[in-house]
């Protein structure tokens, strides 16, 4: 499993597609699609994701998650919980990922895993 993080609009998906040669049809946008596709974009929308089931079905998946934790803490309790859950989800996935990269202005920095991509 590979984890790609970065702020909104930074070019995370384009970077993954360029690195892998996958096309947009290969990209999952829901946990159900992610069971069988190589790339799952929009992890931040699924803070309650069943990670165990997903990783059991698709251990080599590339997860793409938007960074959402760097703003003013929201007034709404549900929003606060969602941001926290997304952050924790990324921490758990990063701990298990063989590779973690952060995308910024379309550029990448490797946070974990120095080997070749695949």
């Amino acid at each position: 499993m590979i984890l790609i993080v970065g702020g909104a609009g930074q070019g995370k998906l384009d970077y993954v597609l360029e690195k892998t040669g996958y096309s947009r049809e290969d990209v999952a946008h829901t946990p159900m699609e992610a069971l069988t596709r190589p790339v799952f974009d929009g992890l931040e929308r699924w803070p309650e994701l069943d990670e165990t089931a997903l990783l059991a079905a698709n251990p080599g998946i590339i997860l793409i998650c938007r960074e959402v934790g760097c703003g003013v803490v929201p007034v709404d309790g549900g929003e606060r919980a969602r941001r926290e859950a997304v952050g924790r989800l990324c921490c758990r996935r990063a701990a298990r990922a063989q590779r973690v990269e952060r995308i910024f202005c379309g550029l990448s920095t490797v946070l974990k895993g120095e080997g070749p991509w695949r």
Binding site: A8, Q10, R66, V68, C70, R83
Partner: peptide, 21 residues
């Protein structure tokens, strides 16, 4: 850097942020 706060902005602001990115 305005892209990592996870806030849901009004559509016009979202469009501004997308443009800046």
């Amino acid at each position: 850097e305005l892209f990592s706060d996870g806030t849901d902005y009004a559509p016009e602001t979202v469009r501004y942020l997308e443009g800046l990115a």
